[in-house]
């Protein structure tokens, strides 16, 4: 996945069972963002792999004032890339469970 300057990681162990999972997002390189992020804290949140989309969360982060509207795509892509990796890994490790 291309480096967007926004890092998204698992905030808990993934055992492949739960559909909702804790993720942690922070800005690694603010120069890659169009707008100025509110502060460079790590934002932890729960994401439902089956029911939600990265764009939902990205929009909520903008509504909450963490990011500027012009960074919606970058934030959504950063979350999407991590979610894709989580799903890919689940397929590999627990194929029957998916």
């Amino acid at each position: 996945a291309e480096d967007t300057g926004v890092r998204v990681e698992l905030a808990e162990e993934d055992h492949g069972r739960k559909s909702s999972i804790a993720l942690r997002l922070w800005v690694e390189d603010p120069k890659k963002l169009k707008g100025k992020p509110k502060d460079n804290g790590a934002i932890e949140f729960t994401f439902d792999l089956e029911k939600e989309t990265p764009d939902d969360v990205a929009q909520e982060m903008i509504d909450s004032g963490f990011f500027h509207e012009s960074d919606l795509k970058i934030v959504a892509k950063s979350i999407r890339d991590r979610v894709a990796l989580i799903l890919w890994r689940r397929e590999r490790i627990w194929p029957r469970m998916q």
């Binding site: 922070w26 690694e28 790590a42 934002i43 949140f45 969360v57 909520e60 909450s64 963490f66």
Partner: peptide, 27 residues
Amino acid sequence: SSFTQVVHSAGRRFIVSPVPESRLKEQ
């Protein structure tokens, strides 16, 4: 504590904590 919590109108909670220095790229 240095954790702050923001709850979005759709109900999702965002918990903000400091990023460990080691995880921030050199500015």
